[in-house]
Amino acid sequence: MVVSASPPPAAARAPRQDGQATRQQILETAGQLFAELGYANTTSKQICENSKANNASVNYHFENKDGLYRAVLREAHDRLVRIETMISLSESQDSAEDKLRAIITVLIEGLNNQREGWALKVLTRELLSPSSVLPAVLEEQAFPKAKIVRTILGQIMHLSPEDPATLRSAVSVFAPCLFLLIAHQPLARNVLPGLELDPPALIEHMMSYALAGLAAVARASGRA
Rank of each mutant, 00 (worst) to 15 (best):
M1F: 10
V3H: 14
A5S: 13
A12I: 08
P15W: 09
Q17V: 10
D18R: 15
Q20R: 10
A21V: 04
E28S: 15
T29R: 02
A30S: 07
L33P: 07
K45N: 12
C48P: 10
E49Q: 15
N55W: 07
N55E: 05
A56L: 10
S57Q: 09
N59S: 11
Y60V: 05
E63N: 15
K65R: 12
D66P: 00
Y69G: 05
Y69M: 08
R70T: 14
A71L: 03
E75P: 01
E75W: 03
I83N: 12
E84K: 11
S90M: 03
S92R: 05
S95T: 14
A96D: 00
K99Y: 03
I103Y: 02
L107K: 09
L107D: 00
L111G: 06
G117S: 10
G117F: 02
V122D: 01
T124Q: 07
E126S: 13
P130I: 00
V133W: 00
V137T: 09
E140S: 12
E140Q: 13
A142L: 13
F143P: 14
I148H: 05
L159R: 07
E162R: 13
T166E: 01
T166Y: 08
V171F: 14
F174Y: 11
A175N: 12
P176G: 08
P176K: 04
F179N: 07
F179R: 10
L181K: 09
A183R: 12
A183Q: 10
P186V: 01
L187N: 09
L187Y: 11
L187M: 09
A188F: 01
L192W: 07
G194D: 01
I203H: 12
I203M: 10
M206R: 13
M206C: 09
A210H: 05
G213L: 00
A215I: 04
A215D: 07
A216M: 07
A216V: 03
G222F: 08
